[in-house]
Every structure is written in structure tokens, then in C-alpha cells.
Design a protein around this nucleic acid. Structure first.
Lengths: 219, 219, 219, 219
DNA sequence: AATGAATGAGCTTTCATTCAT
DNA sequence: AATGAATGAAAGCTCATTCAT
């Protein structure tokens, strides 16, 4: 048989390429439109494939969504853990500041954070995903910050606050900004505008001051 | 008490009660499932009516949703404004604490806050609702808090922070708790549990300390 | 009991008033929109009544339509018959001209002709109305013209044409104009415009000339 | 030949045949029932397809209807134009006779003419279709006949009649027959019966005689 | 491995008809 | 005699999923 010029792009792509293209397209569209409003066909088209092809790799829309969450959120949490672990000799104040700004740098400027919006919106319609998300995303992230605050208290850097509650208080503005970016922030509407960097700075300022502040300053 | 099958509900209810029944059912279901996933027929059934009856009062699903937002969010914002206006002779610290806890008492234990989750999730698919929500809900709420912080700075109670950014930082944990309650918090899954009251207390503690704290305490 | 000023129009209208108002409204709307596209509620509202009231007089939309046809078309045919009967000493040419222009004067400027459009459009979906319409409208109208043409031939005024076919040929432009008026003619669109009076004149001219013309003029 | 139940039609028909099958079924049903009364699902079933398949090819019922009109009416007008253009050396009388009988041969025995009934019935509820139909069908058809009559006058074959009005008078019996065939004529009811060929002959006879007749023959 | 034609359950919306008042 | 709130069967349209090629 005579070798003929391939009339279409090489029929045998590297096996991993296709799924990745599909996951990328799905991430983009799920974040923009949410789970229900994203059409499988549009995902396929964005990935340069056909609907049928998508179903070769993912047996349902739900499984596609899970795969997107696993890949993106999982990776993110892993990396944040590595940052927190490599403590060096810095103070907890410094570490906390670094962790928060570092996380924001990563999450705040990518699509990944948008998945949290989608989970928030649809977790109640999607019960089987709930535990998965709690285990893979929520708990590890929370423990990262919790450990740091606990260590700060033990070292006498921070006041003796309720660790668990303070953690949520510390993280929530970050989460708020992350959600905002992929929701109201994406609508060009006056009133929804938030200066994310300034807000982050203000939060760090307030919360680190608050963590260190004298007890008598209160009330 | 014995439930009796009423084969046909009274044909003429008082004209005024139907819309309220429908709005109540719609609030409940929109908060639970979101806008897209809520079926008109289920709303009607929850209100003890039929599909057709709902359309006697609201010309479309979208208008029904708007009516729900207007009634619930609008009322809420109005009341919060009244609280902030009736200042009395109290300090800004006290007022801010009161506004935040008062708001939470109201929002945190009703379904209303869940509407924010729905807006967050679907505003990008719903462009005509965006400006409405910004004008009716976001802007008034933000200004309430902003004015209070600005006044605190002018009176020398608070440090000279970026007012706009600090406002977001102050409000965001409340919003976080509100969202959480109607999303992950509604899933009986370990890892998602948040002690909302303790978190609110910790936030107040940190943020009020932070607002009052000495500049030299930082860094 | 004290006589009180009646807070609403006299509750007891003359019995015949209501049905007539309903029939008038129905004629108007059926002609404009057709049978299927006319909503019962709109008919009632145009008659200043409520939907329920309409059903007091007519048990279904279909019966309402029949009543409209009966009243309007029936009356029309009766009157045309009277005109043709009162022949006087005029020639058939004159009578035919008079019948055609007289009919047009009556039908061409009222809504009644529009009912023929509706029948034309929906008779196939409405089989039970077909025979009624044939008997009450089509056949009497046809016979009116047929008799006149036959008489004209017998008297030697007209050529010996196929009476039945000539009748259709003579009437059809009238019917065309009548249909046009309530269909394309009601759309403000260039291309649909027809000068009905000139067309009628041209038709009379051609067809009367044709009826009288010498055989040898043809071919 | 034994009909065998095919539990599922061949999944991949040739892409080109589907639209035609759908257009054929749509033509049939639209002509029989009209636009509003024709259900999309029935069209699909008549074409041996499902509802969803129809929507693969036509994005709405309205577009399907337009496609039917375009294909059938457009083709028809084009062919009639070709006939009129290829004049040869024949007289205008001959050409007009030929155009009218030729057109009837084509339209009178197909479903196509029924589309005019549907347009007539529903154009007022369908404003966007009006201009389309005027441009694509009404105007070209009218001009065909108008030009011929004008030429006949110029050559001295015909009397000096109002061209525009005479055109309508000449065409209207054809249109009448065309409408009749798909409306009253399709109902097996005594009184509606029209001998179309005889009527056409009578019309030609009258109208050609009339066009050629001496002025003094009148009155 | 890849396609895209085909399906049909499911959704929003409409409207003739009913009936308690 | 009159009302209008209530109903539910349809109808148009969407989209996740299947499968022959």
C-alpha cells in the first residue's frame, strides 16, 4: 500500500489530548453558564469535536462535570498544601498573608474558582457530588488555614480566638471575591463593581490587625 | 387530625391570597433548586394550584422570579435601612455590630437569603435581571454599610481605611454565611458544617478590632 | 326597602341585546383573525362581557361561529334574492350589472364578506359546517346569478354559453375581491394593492361584452 | 408484498432526502389544515421522522412554512415566467390562453395552489410573511399577465382597457378555482361542486371575447 | 476513534371550558 | 344573568443521549 498524504489531521492523536480539550472547554462553559444551562453540544464544538466524541470519553454530562471538578479543584488544593507546608522560618502572620495572596493570585485570575460558584448553585440538585466535594476541596482547604491560625495562637502571635470560626471568617472574603468574579462581576452593570485587589488588601489589613489586636481594644 | 382529601379546592379563594401562596411556593423552590431547575408546575402544586392558575397571576417564569425577588429582597433592604437610620446616640461600633447581627437574625433564618444564591448562579444567563438586582438590592445594601464605616472614620472611632474596600470585607462573611446556608449547608455532609453564630461572632470580633486597632500593630 | 341609585348599568338588559353584542364582536374578530386564532375571551371583552357570560349564550366556540355565519350570511343572501326578484322591465344585462354592483356595495364595504374567507380557510377542519354553508349560502347565491344568465340566453341577449360555468366565471372576480379585502388587502404591503372599484368595472366590461359578443369575434 | 414492521428506520438516511420529505409532508398538511391547525409532530410523522428531527432542519414552524412556500411557489412562478418569455410568433390572444391553461394544468392538479389558501387565511396573523409573499409570488405573477395584456393592447389585438384592473379580472377566476379546489372543493358536499375545466373554458371564452369585442357591442 | 442524524421525554406557555359564587 | 378563578389538555421547542456508519 502506498503511503498517501494524510487528507485530514493525523487520525491518531496522542490519547490524552482529546479529553483535555474537552475538559478545558467544559470548564470554560460550566463556569460561564452553570451546569444546567451548558449544552453538551456546545462543549464539544468548543473542543473542536462532535457530540458523539464527547460521549466516547464521558458517559454523561454529570460525569463530565465531575471530571472537570476533580481535575481542576483537586490540583489547586494540592498545590496550596505544598505552599503551606514549605513554611521556612517565617511568622504565621507572614505565612497567612502569603497563603491568602498566593491563593488569590492562583484562583482569582483563572477559571477554576468559577467551579465553586457552580457547585454552590447546584450542589443541592446533585447530591452524589456533595461528599466528594467536601472531602476533596472544602476540608483540605479549611485545614490549611485552620492549622496556620492554630499555630499562630500557640506561638503567641495571635489572640486566643475560636480557631474554627476564625478560619471561616478569614477565608470567606476570599471566597466571596472568587464567586463575585464569575457572577455579578462578569456583568457589565454599575453597582456590581468590586475592586478585588483593594478588597483583599483591606481584608488582610483588618483581619491581621484583628488577630493581633489587644483584647482591651474591643468592646 | 385527619387529613381529608379535598377533591377540588374551593373554586374562588380570596383573590389576594393566591399570589402570596404562589410567591411563597416559588421562593421555597427557587431557593432549593435554582431558577432553571425549578418547574413551574411544581411551584403551582406547592401552592395548591394548577399550572394554568399560576399564569393568571404571573405571565412568565421570569416575571414570577422577579416578583419573588422584589417582594422578599426589597422588603429586607427597606427594613435594614430603617434600622441604620434610627441611629440614636450609639457609637458606630455598636451600630455596625447591631446592623450585622440584626441582619443576620433576619436573613440567616429565613429563605430570603437563598435568593442571592440563585442570582449569583444565574445572573449571567439572565442579563435583564442584572441591573434590576444591582439597583434594588446590591447598591442599597452596600451603601448602608459604607455610610456607617465612613461615619466611624469621621468620628475617629475607626482607622482611616479604604471605605469601599472595607465595606466589602466587612459584608462578605455575612454573604458567605448566607450563601452557605442555602447551598452546602443544606447538604447533610460532614465537612460542610459551619457554626454560623460562632463565625459571625469571630468575624465581628476580628473586624471591629481591626477597624479600631493601632496602625503600628500591623506588619 | 329604599330605592337606591343603581351602582351599575341596569342588571336587566333587554334580552336580545347581549347576544347581538357578542355576535358583533365575534364577527369582527373572526374576520380579522380567523376561527382558530380568535380567543373566546377577547370576543367577550370586545362585547363588554365576561367569558362566562358568553358561554351562557353559546355553548362552544364552534356554536358561536355558526351563529355568526347564520345571522350574517343568511341575511345577506335573503336580501340579494329580493333584489333579483324585483326584476321590473329591465334587460338581463342591466339586471346582472345591477346585481353585481349592488352586491358589492353591500358586501364589499362590510365585515360580512370576511366570513367567506374564514369558511374558505377552515371548512376542511370543520366538516359539520360544510353542508350548512353550501345550503344556506353557496347554492342560493349561485342560483341567483345562474337564473339571470339563463334568462339572458333565452331572451337572446347573451350568447349560448355553458350556464353553470359562466356563472362561476361571472361571480369569481367578485368573490376574489371580497376575499382580498379581508386578507392581503388588509396588509399595508406594496404588491397587494388592488383597486377594487376599477377591477369590478373592468370585469363587468369584459364579461358583459363577452356575453354579448359575436361568435366570430373569437379565435 | 408483505409489509414488515421496521422498528427503527435506518439511522442515517442520505442527508439530502430528509428536508425534501419534510417539505412534502408539510406542504400536504399545511394545505389541508392551514398553518395554525397543523401540528409540527404530525408533519414529522408524515415524513417518517420525529419532532426533534424536523427541528434539525427547520428552526421553527414559521421557517418550515416559509421554506415550503419558497420551494413550491417560487419554482412555479419561475416556470410561468419562462413560458411567457418564450413568446415565439404567436398572438397575445394565443399566449394569454396558453398561459392561463398552462398555469392551471400545473397548479390546478397539484397541492401547490393550496398554499395560496393558507396565505389568504393567515397572512393577517403573520405580518412578517406578507412582504415576502408579495415580493416572491404576487408581484411576479401579476406582472406576467399585465405585460401580456399591455402588449396585446399595443398591438391592437385588445381593446384599450385599464391594464391593471383587467389583469386582476383576468386572473381572479383562476385564483378562485385554485382556492376552491383546496377548500370547499375538498368537501364532498353537494352545492360546492364546480366543474373547473368548464369554468376555465367559459372564463377564457368570455374574457377573450370581451378583450377583443367592439365597443359598440356594449350597453 | 469519530461522526452527526435521530430520538423522545420534558419543559414553558396557551386557551376553551367549567362552576362556585 | 353574570362573573372570573381555576383547570388541564395540547402545542412548540430543547437537548441529553444513542447508534449505524
Amino acid at each position: 500500500m502506498i503511503a498517501r498524504a494524510s487528507p485530514r489531521p493525523p487520525a491518531r492523536r496522542r490519547k490524552e489530548v482529546r479529553p483535555q480539550q474537552l475538559l478545558d472547554a467544559a470548564l470554560e462553559l460550566f463556569v460561564e453558564k452553570g451546569f444546567a444551562a451548558t449544552r453538551i453540544e456546545e462543549v464539544a464544538r468548543h473542543a473542536g469535536a462532535s457530540k458523539g466524541t464527547l460521549y466516547l470519553y464521558y458517559p454523561s454530562k454529570e460525569e463530565l462535570f465531575k471530571a472537570v471538578v476533580r481535575q481542576n479543584m483537586g490540583k489547586l488544593i494540592g498545590e496550596a498544601g505544598a505552599v503551606a507546608a514549605g513554611a521556612g522560618g517565617r511568622s504565621c502572620t507572614e505565612l497567612l498573608r502569603e497563603l491568602l495572596t498566593g491563593w488569590w493570585a492562583r484562583v482569582g485570575h483563572s477559571q477554576v474558582g468559577g467551579l465553586h460558584k457552580v457547585m454552590l448553585a447546584e450542589v443541592r440538585n446533585f447530591p452524589e457530588l456533595a461528599q466528594f466535594y467536601a472531602d476533596e476541596v472544602i476540608t483540605p482547604a479549611r485545614e490549611l488555614f485552620q492549622d496556620l491560625i492554630r499555630r499562630g495562637i500557640e506561638r503567641g502571635e495571635f489572640r486566643r480566638v475560636d480557631v474554627r470560626a476564625a478560619t471561616v471568617a478569614v477565608m470567606s472574603p476570599l471566597i466571596f471575591l472568587m464567586l463575585h468574579r464569575h457572577s455579578f462581576g462578569a456583568c457589565a452593570v454599575q453597582g456590581f463593581d468590586v475592586d478585588t485587589d483593594a478588597t483583599l488588601a483591606a481584608h488582610l489589613d483588618l483581619v491581621l490587625t484583628g488577630l493581633q489586636g489587644e483584647v482591651e481594644a474591643r468592646r
